[in-house]
Design a binder for these strands. Structure first.
Lengths: 212, 212, 212, 212
DNA sequence: CATGAATGAGCATTCATTCAT
DNA sequence: GATGAATGAATGCTCATTCAT
């Protein structure tokens, strides 16, 4: 870790901050370009043009188009994770947490539709990868969510079924929802959509009391 | 066996049946090639090679690579629709029907993983299309499903919520599930998966009796 | 010349006439197709389609696309020659003959614009040929025209310059005229155009009496 | 010699001059290749090979084969116009000017036979264009030529006929001449040819004094 | 460091011609 | 004879990546 507490000496400063800012700028533009054009169709030259820099400069920051793409996906997923974590933080009630996660998740993709495109593109172009970026994220959260579900079960709020089952179904439902939102003509405000999903997932389709 | 009862004019007769068989053969191979390589990477020459025909022959049946791709997607979606319709036919009970649809749907994609790839590729490559093929299929079934849900509500089996809400959530859940199945390392037998989904969607996450 | 005075014996008649008619039909269609599309772009299949026959049939009458093209050019040039010869026939006055030839020539190409295209296409595509078809035609007529010019000189009507000079300039002028007519936006009725050309070529640009 | 008096920003500087030189080099080679092979048959790779550069480089300078072709035609026509204009400049006598234009025109095409091929190819391949490049050039010069002809008429040197008539016939005659020169086996030194054309066009075919 | 000129592998598509029926 | 299914050679164009300046 480089310390920056001391004043630097003479000479050109290694402006790591500037570099970092530049990197993020590039990723922002790249996200838009990839989302709009697809991986193959996206032209690194276009990214450079929009940034007002040379193509070589982009290659200084990212060794290849692929690296640029994955940089964009990672940044997107990281932003999603941060947002969801921040929203869920401090919510002790499992139910409240689940509701909050759903709402935040849908809200995030509503604001960042490009990321949905990136996720689909990742799968379409890099089908060899063992696990897509998104699912790495999902796995990383698994234990935390499972703990919450268990808590809910212990408190008698959540039905006593394997937590994994709940997490999977909820996760798939959300994943399917963002895809459908962006790939079909369906237009529902994400807040109402969150309510709908929460209602069905929480209470089920059946009239109360009836169990399969 | 081709009947030749009618006199025919001079020249080589068209054999519509043979042509249709050939068309389907081509689509079968193309599905595999596209699913394995992606749209851009897929080489029409490879399709021809696998069929043991010339590239020109493929172009006799499909005017372009794009047409070939959409032919494959359409055939897949049509097969899905047929299978699900056939399975659901004759089931009067809304609940039984819903269960059956879910099971058949997951079973179909379990058997035909290539179609999942095709769906994702369609979206990744042809993002300009107003509505992806899959969603045309979903819309086509909407009314039918809504009628069943209403029936279930009238009979007091299904909670009295807008049928649209149920159909959307169930649909998104299934859509998300097949994607997750094929894009993550998760491996669950589709039957158990169907049971899991049915359990959660039918009964909800909450303990019985509790409503939001 | 095949005699058909005697009745033929039994068996299928060698219907040479039908074949000839078919050949001409094909050439007529081919002329239009080549003129409209150019040599490379013209598709033999299109010729067959317009005739309502199979592609193989066209190839029965012409061994190759090239033969088909040259057949069309030859037919066109032959028709031109016939028309011009017929018109000039019986005209003894060299001046009347020259006028008549110019008028007929321009009239022919006015009626048959496709032939102009064919001539240009021949040159554009078959630049290896020693002499284009059109110039074979021009050479074939050279002697005849020269004889007339000489006659005119002897009679004191035509200036005493090498007949070749006159024939070349008149020929080039006509050739340039039909090309210009079809390749530029210039639209002048061919009769007036003939008058213009005749006026200038006959009387020159200078005021009478003045000679270089 | 490139001046570097001004400070420039980082990165490789654009060298507009070099680029222009390169562009012209490419056009020169392309002219030869198109003239020799025709548009369709010409292979951009051959152009690149002859230049000793990669195919992509050619495409850096010209966005398409078509643009390359039209670039070559334009350059040729521009060179023609410059040469003719330069030669005619300062000649006040309408007759001298006309003679000079004819001589220079024929001389130019004698030196640049490739351009004749390009003109014919343009028409053969791009028959949809409203007006071929050559005729744009001809139209551009029309007014200027007409003014000279009028002057000649006023001075009593040129017969009092519509100037348009003279310009058209002379223009068509020249156009027809260059085509004939290159498409037939006729081989006449261009100077003599110019004299022949001038003689006939100026003085006419008829013996002096006789007018139609 | 930044730039952008140069490269060339990679792929869809067309269509003349052949020949089994 | 007639047909049309099959073939495959031929080529324009794109764009990631490199590297001289």
């Amino acid at each position: 870790m480089r310390m920056k507490t001391k004043k630097r000496g003479p000479g050109r400063p290694r402006d790591a901050e500037l570099a970092e800012r530049r990197r993020e700028e590039i990723l922002g533009v790249a996200t838009g370009v990839f989302a709009a054009a697809g991986y193959r169709q996206a032209d690194v030259q276009v990214v450079a043009d929009r940034l007002g820099v040379g193509k070589g400069t982009v290659y200084r920051y990212f060794p290849s188009k692929e690296a640029l793409f994955f940089g964009a996906v990672d940044a997107g997923i990281r932003a999603l994770a941060e947002r969801v974590d921040a929203a869920a933080e401090g919510l002790d009630d499992p139910v409240e947490q689940m509701k909050c996660v759903i709402l935040t998740y849908l809200g995030f993709f509503d604001e960042n539709p490009d990321l949905v495109e990136l996720l689909i593109i990742e799968r379409a172009e890099f089908r060899d990868r063992e696990q897509a970026t998104y699912f790495v994220y999902r796995e990383r959260n698994f234990e935390r969510r499972a703990a919450f579900v268990k808590q809910g079960i212990e408190r008698g709020i959540i039905r006593d079924v394997p937590p994994e089952r709940i997490i999977n179904v909820v996760g798939d439902c959300l994943y399917g929802t963002i895809f459908t939102n962006h790939f079909s003509t369906r237009k529902i405000p994400f807040k109402r959509q969150a309510d709908d999903i929460i209602d069905i997932l929480m209470n089920g389709v059946f009239t109360a009391g009836r169990v399969r």
